[in-house]
Design a protein around this nucleic acid. Sequence first.
DNA 1: ATTTTATGTCAGCCATGTTGACATATCTTT
DNA 2: AAAGATATGTCAACATGGCTGACATAAAAT
Lengths: 196, 196
Amino acid sequence: MADIKLTDKQAFAQNSALRETAKTASLDAAASKSAFPTKKEDHHDPLNEVIELLFFAYRDFTSDPDAILTDYDFGRAHHRVIHFVGRHPGITVAQLLAILGITKQSLARVLKQLVAEEYVIQKTGTRDRRQRLLHLSPKGEQLERRLSEPQRKRVAKALNQAGPEAIDTFRKTLLALINPEDQSTVAKLTGKGEVS
Amino acid sequence: MADIKLTDKQAFAQNSALRETAKTASLDAAASKSAFPTKKEDHHDPLNEVIELLFFAYRDFTSDPDAILTDYDFGRAHHRVIHFVGRHPGITVAQLLAILGITKQSLARVLKQLVAEEYVIQKTGTRDRRQRLLHLSPKGEQLERRLSEPQRKRVAKALNQAGPEAIDTFRKTLLALINPEDQSTVAKLTGKGEVS
DNA sequence: ATTTTATGTCAGCCATGTTGACATATCTTT
DNA sequence: AAAGATATGTCAACATGGCTGACATAAAAT
């Protein structure tokens, strides 16, 4: 054995002959060693089940773009901006802030980078010259497609597997999970019956 | 006007006579000023719609517990631990790490607090005395109930609104969103046909 | 002309993720 | 019994992306 120092992770992989790391440690691996205990009262509670499924589904749903973003030194925050600017070209900074629910200082940090690296383009508003209307550059659109592709595929596959009524039911359920005050706005925002 | 300094936020509230803050700035408020632009090609794409709905639904879904946790000086990370320990009493640290998908150092930071403040109890394993089997104390169970209550209500309401088939379809769709390698494990973990 | 609004920016704090390195107790294997 | 592997804990340092507070500028609205 060489005298090269191993980190915990490497030592683990070496010792256990598994290629697991902290990040990739699979549920399967943990489960295979021994069963997960589960509280008896919860076995037949579909609400608790859905709550946990939401956690896992969202985690995996965001994992594909997260992995891609490391190539660009961007994070999840950049993705959100690219997504919403891509889907709503000409959106104002104020509107984007409202959608994301973060402060302008938080947005500025990522938006500045995206503008500097020319993924996002700011056009001065014509009606109101104070506004900076946000658009994706061709480069930005390319990144947007790269990021959304695995998510679209994942959702398409899930909806297909869940059956023909799933599209409608899943959409309805997600919408109903949103705070009632925002439901109509989100429905307009994301939906078909649209807008300017 | 008094010479008291106002922050941006206060100045905004004062000037605009709105009670909005950065955190509570509503989508409605932003939408009311002018319509959100939306890319034409996307109008009829249900996949993009579902992707956005997932973002908003998950955001609101986590907002209720987040608000409660500030009373305890805990964050979302503490919530996850409390949730999974509560639902799987006797879970080992390694199993919890696999579920959460974080490093042991990240977990340690929150778990240490939860143990110190006696929300979580560690019992030395009998079969394997190296293991620390995690349980909620009565205090921890109380907090768990407080945190899960609004989420359970939200999910119950959404499923009701979406119709009788929603429970099954929603669950199936969420499960299908999860990485295939983990689906069977998660199904066992959250599901009914259970375990030790 | 004054006030309000839309946006930007500096500075610093906090929560929660990450790596790397190492310690200890206990179980497993030789 | 000794050696190795595993489960857990811990110190230190760093990154990301939230946050608040304070202030600046340009343009619109009054």
